[in-house]
Design a protein around this nucleic acid. Structure first.
Ligand SMILES: NC(=O)c1ccc[n+]([C@@H]2O[C@H](COP(=O)([O-])OP(=O)(O)OC[C@H]3O[C@@H](n4cnc5c(N)ncnc54)[C@H](O)[C@@H]3O)[C@@H](O)[C@H]2O)c1
Ligand SMILES: NC(=O)c1ccc[n+]([C@@H]2O[C@H](COP(=O)([O-])OP(=O)(O)OC[C@H]3O[C@@H](n4cnc5c(N)ncnc54)[C@H](O)[C@@H]3O)[C@@H](O)[C@H]2O)c1
Lengths: 209, 209
DNA sequence: AGACATTTGTGAAATTCGACACAATCATAT
DNA sequence: ATATGATTGTGTCGAATTTCACAAATGTCT
């Protein structure tokens, strides 16, 4: 039970939770740090140490009760509630995100979509109307949306991020491949496939041509 | 010039490269570890240390020549060549990936798309025909594709990954939210927005209802 | 009941990583 | 020519992180 748990530990918890979700789906009752470790490709000691920051969840000689540990992790990560999200940018990626069926059972749902393109505004995706960016700040506030997925072009990303913060958003997951600046206390994460790819090509032998 | 550079260092290099690409676009000639550090939100010493693993690229009192450093990073990361990629799974996400215009100028391009759905096979995305998964292994080999983007449902992910490896693919970027097992030497990375979101909600105050 | 096999939680050791601080170097101005 | 200001590359150290290893606890088997 630490005062402050290292971010690197927090970043692993969702992976533990993901593995546990799968086990619950398969009606698996018990697991162990070793089983989790093998599945995730890390050491069992690390898993035990990580969990020990938050309490004692296992039983010696037995391991962990899967549904119990899952609930504990959900509670720790504040995903024992359903979080409403906004998607900004109703382009190719925005469409995929709004239609994505993988959010709901993992504690998130898209409740609003915004764009600037007049041709797109008013259209609907998955039964949800695309709203104008001009009403975004106000809508975010009234809907009390705290999380946004940013799927706009690079040139608009910082501006939109500023508006999101103005609308009361507290966490932004940006798909735009550019560094964004947000006030202290606002959570920010990036998803950039090219960054992931370029880390892998380092280890690949270049193609001889 | 180390024998083996820590993976954590390698993972930062693409971020440096991304920042440098932006500077090149703005015709900026010179930069410094300090400027890069501010932009990326890390310390300047870290950037210098990271780069020092590979050589001396800067000039004291001046900093780094932007185009030169960019080229060096490209060379280090093996992205001074264009890598061909396959996309597997022509669903919502697969479509967005195939249409994505952000790969080309960052050293990647999608050259093949595979799916199992008979309704989708034969259709084309962005001028590229969706091919049957039954010919995938063979096609990967003849096209000498070494990188794949995995955008299939969870239940198919491990099976498709096995096929990719059989086809000679050496690096897989999986969007399926499940752990995949690959042989030693095969690069594997994941993109899971929910994992990113759940790390952020840890820091958010739960909504009171 | 007692022996045995497991597995947790955690101090301690080992390792990895990042921050600091500064000599060396370069450009520029006077 | 010299002084000045800026910035790199790196040795050193402290902090952060991971691994080790084991006592304690639990369930099972005979
Ligand atoms: N498509 C992909 O697979 C993919 C992959 C990785 C990253 N990305 C990134 O995600 C972002 C979106 O990609 P995309 O392929 O969907 O692009 P896109 O061009 O298809 O869509 C962008 C959308 O954003 C809207 N937009 C522009 N300015 C806006 C603003 N100020 N406010 C609200 N909406 C605005 C546009 O009208 C458009 O509908 C880009 O930054 C891209 O680099 C995309
Ligand atoms: N859509 C998103 O924004 C999003 C976001 C994050 C992660 N994901 C993940 O990406 C994957 C794809 O998501 P999606 O929304 O595009 O789903 P989707 O259902 O729209 O598309 C999946 C496609 O994969 C094809 N497929 C199924 N089995 C296959 C096989 N064995 N070989 C080849 N193709 C096969 C299907 O025919 C379908 O076209 C899923 O694992 C999903 O969890 C999607």
């Amino acid at each position: 039970m630490d005062a402050s748990v290292p971010a690197i530990v927090i970043n692993r918890l969702p992976l533990y939770l993901r593995a546990l979700d799968l086990m619950v789906e398969n009606d698996q009752r018990l697991t162990s740090s070793q089983e989790l470790a093998e599945w995730l490709g890390i050491s069992s000691a690390q898993i035990r140490k990580d969990l020990s920051h938050f309490g004692e969840f296992g039983k010696q000689g037995t391991g962990y009760e899967v549904p119990f540990l899952r609930d504990q992790l959900r509670s720790i990560l504040n995903v024992d509630q359903l979080w409403d999200m906004a998607v900004v940018g109703a382009g190719a990626l925005g469409h995929a995100l709004v239609n994505y069926g993988g959010f709901a059972h993992r504690s998130f749902r898209v409740r609003a979509v915004f764009d600037v393109d007049p041709d797109k505004i008013g259209q609907s995706i998955n039964g949800m109307a695309i709203e104008s960016q001009t009403v975004m700040v106000e809508r975010l506030q009234t809907m009390e949306i705290k999380i946004a997925l940013l799927a706009v072009p690079v040139r608009a990303a910082q501006h939109v991020a500023d508006l999101l913060v103005k609308g009361g958003v507290r966490a932004i997951l940006s798909y735009a491949p550019i560094t964004i600046t947000v006030p202290n206390g606002i959570q920010l994460a990036y998803i950039d496939p090219v960054v992931a790819l370029q880390s892998m090509t380092y280890y690949l032998t270049p193609v001889v041509t």
